[in-house]
Design a protein around this nucleic acid. Sequence first.
DNA 1: GTAGGGTTAG
Length: 697
Amino acid sequence: MHKRILQRALHNLQQQNPNTIIQPILLDSSTCISLIKQCKSIKTLKSLHALMIRSHLHTNLFFSTNLITQYSSLGSITHAYSLFSSAQASDVFLWNVMIRCFVESSSYERAVGLYCRMKEYGVRPDNYTFPYVVKACGHLRDVKLCRVVHGDVVEFGYEYDVFVDNSLMTMYGRCEQVGVSRQVFDRMSERSLVSWSAMIGAYAQNGFYKDGFALFRKMLSERIKPNRVAVLSVIPCVSSETDADEISRVIVEHRLDSEQSIQNAAMLMYSKCGRIDIARRTFEKIPNKDLIAWSSMIEAYAQADMPIEALDLLKQLKLQRIQLDYVTVLSVIRACSSLASLRQARFIHGFITKGSFQNELVLETALIDLYVKCGSLEYARKVFQRMQKRNLVSWSTIISGYGMHGRGREALDLFDQMKETEKPDHITFVSVLSACAHAGLIAEGWSCFNSMTKDFGLTPMSEHYACMVDILGRAGQLNEARVFINNMPIKPESGVWGALLGACRIHSNVELAEFAAKSLFELDPENPGRYVLLSNIYRSMGKREEADRIRALMKQKGVRKDPGHTIIEVKNKMYKFVVGEKSNPQTELIHKELDILMERIRIEGYVPDTNFVLHDIEEEMKEKMLYLHSEKLAIVFGILNSSPGSVIRIKKNLRVCGDCHTATKFISKVTEREIVVRDAHRFHHFKGGECSCGDYW
DNA sequence: GTAGGGTTAG
C-alpha cells in the first residue's frame, strides 16, 4: 500500500503536476525522504522541493540535508549549495553534509573553503567532518594545507580516531609524504584492516614497493585476515614472479580468487613481472568478463610491449559488440604507440571520431602522443590545434613531441605560449630541457633550467640534471658537465651518469667514461646498454683488451645485450629485420639492391665508418657487416615495396647506428625519398641528404 | 552521514 502511494506521488511529480499529490502523504517524514531519494532528475527533485516549501517542510534539518545530498548526487552542486546557504547553519551535521557533497563532486577547494568558513562561524568540527576535509586536502596535494588540517585534528581531539587517522594516512600518501603517513600509522593505538590497507596503499602509490610488501607480510604475521581491498592495495608492490606467486597463494587461501577486481589486478601484476602468459591465462579463466577485465588485459599487453595482441583483443571486443569506454581506448593507444604505425594511428583516430567517448581532452592528448610516436608531427599538431580545451598535460605532450623530432625552437615557442595559461611542472621541464638537448640549444637550456626554480618554485630533480648534462656533454663541454654533476645538491641517479657516458662516446673521452661507468654499474647494473657503450668507447679508441674486459664483465653478471632490430610496415604488414636478416622472402632482392645503393652513395661521398662494427675482423669484412645492419635492410625493403616519392618510416629498438645515420642521409638524397627513423630516444627526419637533427645527437 | 580499493592522457 505504502509503496503504491509513493509510486503515484513520484509519477505525479515526474508529470510536473505536483498539485495533485495528496498533502497528507507528504506529512509523513519517511515517505518524504523516500521520495527525495527516488528522484532521478533535477527537474523532479525541484518540483518536490517546491512542494516541501509550500508545506513548510524545507526548514526541517533532516529534510534539507537529504535534499542537499540528492541535488549533489544528481550533479547539481549549485542547487545543493544554494539550499545549504538558505538553511540554518548552526548545526555541524549540515556543514558536514555540504562538505561531503563538495568532496564527492571533486570540488576539493570549495570543500576546504567551506571547512574554514565553518570554523569562522564558530561551529566545532566533529569526527565526521575530518575524514571529508582530510580527503579533500589529499586531493589538493598541498602539503602546507595538510599540515594545518592535521593540526586541527589534534587541536579538536580527534588524533586517535581510527577513521580520521586512516584518512590522514591516505592524505599524506597523496602528497608524497609517505613518511608522515607511517608516523600516523605507528602512533595509532587501535588499527583496523583499513589502516593497514591505507598504509600499504600509500607505500604503493609512492613507489615504496618493498616497504608496502613488507607491511603486508607483517599484517599477515599478526594474523589479520586480508580482504579484497587489502590485497588490491599490495598488488602494485609486486615486483617479481616470486612476490606474485606469494600474493596468489594469499588470494586463494582467503578465497578471494573469484573476485573480478582481484583477477583484473592479478593480470597486470603478472604482466608487470614478465609473465604475460599467466596474465592471459587468468583472463581466459574469468567467466563473465566485464569491460574492465578486457581493458586490463589490453593494458597488460601494452605494458608487455605486445601491440599486435592488444589490437587483436580490441577486434574481439568489437565482434562481441561490447560497448567500450575511453579507458579501453587509452590502453589501445598506449599499446599502439610502440608499434609506430601511422596507418594504425589513423585507424584509431577514426575509431575515436566515429564513437562518442567521455574525456575528450584525455583522449586527444593520448592521440597527440600516438601521432608523435608514429613519426607524424603534422597530425599531432592538427589534433592539438583543433582541441576545444587544453591543459598542462596536453601542452607538455606537444612540446615533448617537437623536442623528440629535433624541433627545439618550435618546442620553446610552444612553451612560451603555454606559460600564458598553464603553470609548468616537473614533467613539462623535462620535455623542454630534452628538446633543448636534442636541438643543441645550450643557452636556452641554461635559461630554462634556471627559470624552473626562479620563476616557478620547482626544485630540479635528477632527470632535469640529466638533461643539462646531456646538453653540456653533446656540446663537448665535458669538464663543465663534470663540475655540474659535482655541484648537484642531490645524489645523481643513473640517467645523469648515462648522459655523461653518452657524451664521452661522442667526444672520445675514455677517462671520464670510466668515471661515469663506475657509478652506472653500481646504480644500474642490469642495463646492457651501459656496458655496450663503454665497450664501444674502448674499441673506438683502439683499446681492444679493455673492451673485451667489459664484454666479459657483462657475461659474468649475466647481463644480455638486447639484439638490435628494425621494424617497417609495408602494405599493412609489419616486417622485422635483425643484423644479416635472411628470413625475409625478398632477401636476395634486398641484397642486390643494397649493393647498388651502396655504390651510388659512395659516388656521392659516403665513407663507411667501421667504428660501429664490434668484431675484430678485416676492414673489408667490417664494411660488409655494416651493409647488413637492420636499419639499412629495412630501408631498402621499404624502397622496393612502396611507391616512388612516398615517405619511408622505420623503427629501431636501440639508438640508430652512426654509420647507418650517415648512410641514410645519402640514401635520402640519391633516392629522393623522405625517411623517418624512430629510435630508442628520438626521431630523425632524413630528406635531400640532410637529417633534421643536424648531426647533433 | 565517516577511512583503504580493479582498467585511466605528458
